[in-house]
Design a protein around this nucleic acid. Sequence first.
DNA 1: CTGAAAGCGCTTACAG
DNA 2: CTGAAAGCGCTTACAG
Lengths: 338, 338
Amino acid sequence: MTLEEVARVAGVSRATASRVVNGSPKVNPQARRGVERAIARLGYVPNRAARSLVTRRSDSIGVVIREPTARLFGDPYFPQLLSGISAALSPRGLQLILLMPRSREEDRRLEQYLTAGHIDGVLLASLHGNDPLPGRLDGDGIPVVVGGRPPEGVRVSFVDNDNYGGAVAAVSHLIASGRHTVATISGPLDMEAGVARLRGYREALRSAGRSLDPSLEAEGEFTQESGAQAMRALLQRHPELDAVFVASDLMAAGALQVLNAAERRVPDDVAIVGFDDSPIALMTVPPLSTVRQSIEEMGREMVRLLLESIDERDRAPRQVILVTELILRGSCGGGPMS
Amino acid sequence: MTLEEVARVAGVSRATASRVVNGSPKVNPQARRGVERAIARLGYVPNRAARSLVTRRSDSIGVVIREPTARLFGDPYFPQLLSGISAALSPRGLQLILLMPRSREEDRRLEQYLTAGHIDGVLLASLHGNDPLPGRLDGDGIPVVVGGRPPEGVRVSFVDNDNYGGAVAAVSHLIASGRHTVATISGPLDMEAGVARLRGYREALRSAGRSLDPSLEAEGEFTQESGAQAMRALLQRHPELDAVFVASDLMAAGALQVLNAAERRVPDDVAIVGFDDSPIALMTVPPLSTVRQSIEEMGREMVRLLLESIDERDRAPRQVILVTELILRGSCGGGPMS
DNA sequence: CTGAAAGCGCTTACAG
DNA sequence: CTGAAAGCGCTTACAG
């Protein structure tokens, strides 16, 4: 089933048939109808490879997820992101190519693959530290959009949540509701999201006239186990604490377990606010107050920015910051207990 | 950077250069070395579109995930499956094309896409009811492998877990440890995995000489909320129950919440065993006893079967059943309480 | 608005 | 073992 046959059936040239397929305006309506009918009758579908060969476009987008398994599986973050990306890609007929390198070796090959021209653009999520990948891809002229923030000094488009604002709102609420000793379990500090939420915590304390105490801060790595561990450390250092702002719901679930085991009642003895509003927030007892962000929307926005920078090659990088919202539930005494 | 240039630099014809790239044995070692050096020097990477056009292979595999959002996000099932699939695909240079149709319309287009020859084979996960897709794809000559079981009467290769055996083991353990009234929360009964686990539950009761009671069975849909609801129904019908076999960890987490709220102590008053051994099993208090299955391995096996059926077109369908293993933790009184 | 023709980069009989 | 040549299915200046 080729264009040639469609053209023959419709009684036009291959060129005209091609124009109809590609929606070119300069086709006589009658010819157009003939071709459309032929396409429908024959069930013609263009050959992507042949098209790519001449257009030099693959019509596919690479989505790179390079995260250790622990986080990948515990956290609904990645399915949500993929869902948003897929929803934005599929109506445009773009393929989502999923890349999950899981070793140094695969990471090396990944970069070669991405720069080899097999894809039209790259979506990068969940970067750590000073990852050189976004900068290198950008240097090679590959359109890139980062979910979260690109490393310092790398000027590529990105979509981020208002991590800072969300943290400020959460901690301000804890203070306003009368808590005296507000601790925090931060995300990994080699990730922008981790750093920004910690900054928000500090800012809220500062602007409430509270003094900062580094021993009230413990670092986690966005896994449930690391949240539990951080909570144990905090309890030991500050048995008197009566509130914790935890930088992810998954870590908050871990912290909750530890508080339970230590026979601290939540929210009576200790109030907790998480971050993400992931489904996990509803699985805990009591349900978690949390900062809502829409990861699916983040995925959709990433696609939008990427398509823009594919279409208009050397436009300046854009950035989109998505709002976050404080959701009150039982874990901080402000909402329903189940 | 084309083969042509590589050939020129190496002083051979394009045909010979191509043979080296494709590892053909009939190339003079000296010529081979020359070409390899040229490739390395120039950083040559073959153009996939041009290659596909002539080989009629896309070197990409479609992975279809058609599941309502609720399950998709709460359950680590899909990330694990994708991770296993990706791990098996990437060393062979095959692209993983992720397809997540989320409407009737997208579902229709999906089928067209899959049969249009853009991909070499399809992996289908998490089928419901009498889904016609696997049968149709098979009818169109598209290699297909199903994760779980294909619908009755559809003869395609599949990889499944020993759901039945796992359920028998779990329920037998509950009976052996002295529980009198063992209820179950099943998975959706339009899914093979749901049905098989329920059959296992019944078989274990039967072979222990217990009588079956339909009112001890409640159907869930593999989500946390449905697990909670089913638990409420069971408690109402059978306040005396002292054990529940729940067909997924996520549903078990929901059931646990309800038991907590009803002030039933787990495992003292009621023992629970889940299914999956997902990370969720460690997040609950007490941690869940569960039936372990390896979803990542399932993904890898699916790829293996698919590649076999791509290479050897009309071979008979194969099936692989992966073993499951009962893991004892605090929730049924057999293991650690935290 | 339309068609003949070139050309995208590769693989693979075919003849030697 | 090697090369000249055909051909995969499409898009797109170009000339009309």
